[in-house]
Design a protein around this nucleic acid. Sequence first.
DNA 1: CTGAAAGCGCTTACAG
DNA 2: CTGAAAGCGCTTACAG
Lengths: 332, 332
Amino acid sequence: MTTPARPAPTIIDVARAAGVSKSLVSLAIRGDAGVSDATRTRILEVADELGYHSNALARGLARGRTQMVGLLVSDLANPYFADVVHGIEEDADATGLGTIIGHGRGSAEVLARRLDEILDLGVDGVIVISAMLDGGTLDRAAARRPVVMVGRPFAPPRRVSVVRNHDEHGAEAAVSHLISLGHRRIAHLASSRRAAATARRDSFERTMRAAGLAPHVIDAGDDGVARLLDRVGAPDGPTACFAGNDRIATAVLSDALDRGLGVPTDLSVVGYDNAEAGRLVRPALTTVEQPREAMGREAMRLLRARIDGDREVAEITLEPRLVVRGSTGPAA
Amino acid sequence: MTTPARPAPTIIDVARAAGVSKSLVSLAIRGDAGVSDATRTRILEVADELGYHSNALARGLARGRTQMVGLLVSDLANPYFADVVHGIEEDADATGLGTIIGHGRGSAEVLARRLDEILDLGVDGVIVISAMLDGGTLDRAAARRPVVMVGRPFAPPRRVSVVRNHDEHGAEAAVSHLISLGHRRIAHLASSRRAAATARRDSFERTMRAAGLAPHVIDAGDDGVARLLDRVGAPDGPTACFAGNDRIATAVLSDALDRGLGVPTDLSVVGYDNAEAGRLVRPALTTVEQPREAMGREAMRLLRARIDGDREVAEITLEPRLVVRGSTGPAA
DNA sequence: CTGAAAGCGCTTACAG
DNA sequence: CTGAAAGCGCTTACAG
């Protein structure tokens, strides 16, 4: 029916209606001391009646600060992001900062574009929850505003603070758990070539060798799950599998059950991430949990410090923990 | 090391460096005709060298348009949103609009706050992917900018366009499927008291009665799943269950298996939403799929029309479809 | 405690 | 094809 035709009331309309100058309205609305209580109350009432909303564009332009931070995520569907964002927003809410989210839809190119758009919008800082962006892109962003990354870059760009989990410790915990259950032929399904995946893989190999066992690594892409399952039950086949993330681990679980293999009787399975799906499947998934909300909170702390003028670039590594459920059991 | 100390170059810096007036720079950057190719090229080169970025705040303030739309979601972790957002962004990308996402974290109050923040930021329109917001809040937003809602409100606010799926048809398809498999004692686990849930429940009851069967409805909250499973196997106990959404359906599945019940031998289960988890669990979940990406695209189409001055408020209902998997089978 | 003035970085008619 | 000027809605010293 109606379009938002009527132009939005401005500070001038409020000033006129309240019979004061526009600077006074500005002060009153921002809660500045030095405006009498009576006047402030009256001005706020008038503003409310008129349906006045402060124009954030004009405010940001005049102040050079928007009190907004941008959150860049590469993939909304991945629940990992939801938890990190939760941690970030808890801190942001408590410190009076607004958050807007930009979404890369799984593409580094789209993500970089969103990053630019959000910087153009004048946010006071940015948290990139993704390891997708290359160093150059991150560094160019960091030249404009403070940038914190949650995740694990290959080489931390000079001007970007990083919050990540200790992938080596997480992988070690997963593999040690399997070894302590008596498994000796353990395969690793590597998730990707990114830094976190590489660290988990390296740690898998080190932990196996330290126990005097031969590490066996399979690339998860290109039918890796099928190739793994083909060998289960063979004389020298694996009795356990450490998957690079929960998505792969749940695929192993589903496909194993579809083949009539028992989990954990024929194959023990460990994932990484503690995704929600791992709690729903049966047997429920043993996995490594990153402290996602804590990572978000730390990232926001670092960003606030940078926004407030701290020049220090930091790197924070948080400890993951093993969550044991039904998908792992004693070796046959 | 370095802070983003150096103030960002403006159109004036570019003008000076290129030896032209600042209005000319503005025209050249926006690709206005009426600037010679040679001049435009030179100006763009200079802008690039200087690392110039157009200030979206200033641009938006001057033009009254930001070419940005706001997307409000109540819960990032729910994959339903990711697909709707995907559809929206496909259209937005193709039509040159940017998108920023505001996140309600499961709270109507937080969501309403984000909605305000994003409107203050001067977006050209808003898509609310949630049925959480009350009519008053939506209507107040619609008084400021065009608003489209994806989901099902109880009473569509006068000024808000709506895109939703046909819950009645979806529920009917689910129940008819069970009836055609020979089930006669079918229970419905109602998910909430919201409009979509109510529509599914009503349709369940109508479909059952039309088939001469007695509808049995259980509130999913408050241990509803346990109360349902307690009765499975009893002489007059249910042999099938239509859950109001996939989250509930997968809980039924997990809990049934934990109790040693067979699915679908002892109990057939149907969900609603086609969430990813339903594909991962075993048996995989039979469910009703909403055309989520299409709903997003339609919402964006409606919003663009409104932004371009169309005053028509529309309501679009898309058809869901049944996805049959392993969790449903013939009645014993 | 209050008001007039300049400025944030851009766009947009309007003259040349 | 190019330049000077006003204005978008706010904030911020600066005088009173």
